[in-house]
């Protein structure tokens, strides 16, 4: 009887356990603690900025069909596919631009502030974002429906967790540099997001105007890469002197 009661109690508590949600997941233990302060002298730091454009006729974004979930059909009415978003003047949105090489052995402090990946309108928002190794990534369900958060990295640890209740949050910490970590929701197959995980803070994501800024770089020569989920990658080499600002441009072809 006691065993039976235990089983019944356990079963009854399962939804509660799910409802609590939250908790922090870690891909793997970090190797050595990061420094508390930046090794870069602000007096000499420079900036790389630029714009990403699309050459040619951009594809027309397809309308998303969300009718497999009534809540999504209501929340995300009129939503379009975000895989290639081209704005005015050919500006390409959602391009992850980062310093791929040139920082040598410099190590940087890890922000304690979490970057937020929201699930809103049955889409991941933002669609592309960046985080540092060891930085908390908070994943939130702002929808009145359930989602599963499924990260499918190549180097970090894969995870797939459910967020059945609106408002649920979970925090994940990536342990290894990886560009990019894809996220999907298997319940709603149109939901996709990408997180660039780096061991430094020099990255950015282009907005609607296609621009990006990499601030606070120490003088030196860098390989800067622009990554796009459909259009591929492009790299450029750029050299900046003390307090110098350089502009570069990337042009993707359809």
């Amino acid at each position: 009887m006691r065993v039976l009661s235990g089983v019944v109690l356990g079963v009854a508590l399962l939804p509660l356990a799910a409802a609590c949600g939250g908790g922090t997941q870690e891909s793997a233990p970090a190797q050595a603690p990061p420094p508390a302060t930046s090794p870069v002298d602000p007096a000499t730091a420079g900036t790389v900025m630029g714009r990403v454009t699309f050459a040619g006729t951009p594809p027309k974004p397809a309308a998303l069909r969300m009718d497999s979930d009534p809540a999504c059909a209501q929340q995300g009415a009129g939503a379009t596919d975000e895989s290639v978003v081209v704005g005015d003047g050919g500006a390409v949105q959602n391009v992850f631009v980062y310093v791929k090489d040139g920082l040598g052995t410099l190590r940087f402090p890890v922000p304690s502030t979490a970057v937020v990946l929201d699930q809103k309108g049955c889409r991941y928002a933002p669609h592309v974002l960046g985080a540092q190794v060891g930085q908390p990534v908070e994943i939130v369900n702002s929808d009145p429906t359930l989602h599963n958060v499924h990260a499918v990295p190549a180097s970090n640890q894969e995870f797939n967790t459910g967020q059945p209740i609106p408002g649920m949050k979970q925090t994940h910490v990536f342990s290894t540099r990886e560009v990019m970590v894809p996220f999907k929701c298997d319940v709603h197959p149109w939901m996709r997001a990408f997180i660039g995980v780096l061991d430094h803070p020099y990255f950015g994501v282009t907005g609607a105007d296609g621009t990006f800024t990499l601030q606070g770089l120490p003088p030196g020569t860098y390989t800067v890469e622009a990554w796009h989920e459909k259009l591929g990658t492009q790299t450029q080499s750029v050299t900046i002197g003390p307090k110098e600002s350089k502009e570069i441009a990337f042009a993707f072809k359809g």
């Binding site: 079963v11 399962l14 939804p15 509660l16 356990a17 799910a18 409802a19 497999s68 979930d69 009534p70 809540a71 999504c72 429906t145 359930l146 599963n148 499924h150 797939n160 967790t161 459910g162 059945p164 298997d186 319940v187 709603h188 197959p189």
Partner: peptide, 23 residues
């Protein structure tokens, strides 16, 4: 459904029908 044998934390046979959406 990321968990097993439960379904989003629910006992399989008590999972609400209105949550059976999408995949």
């Amino acid at each position: 459904v990321p968990d097993w044998p439960t379904t989003y934390g629910w006992f399989m046979f008590t999972f609400p029908l209105d949550k059976m959406v999408g995949g």
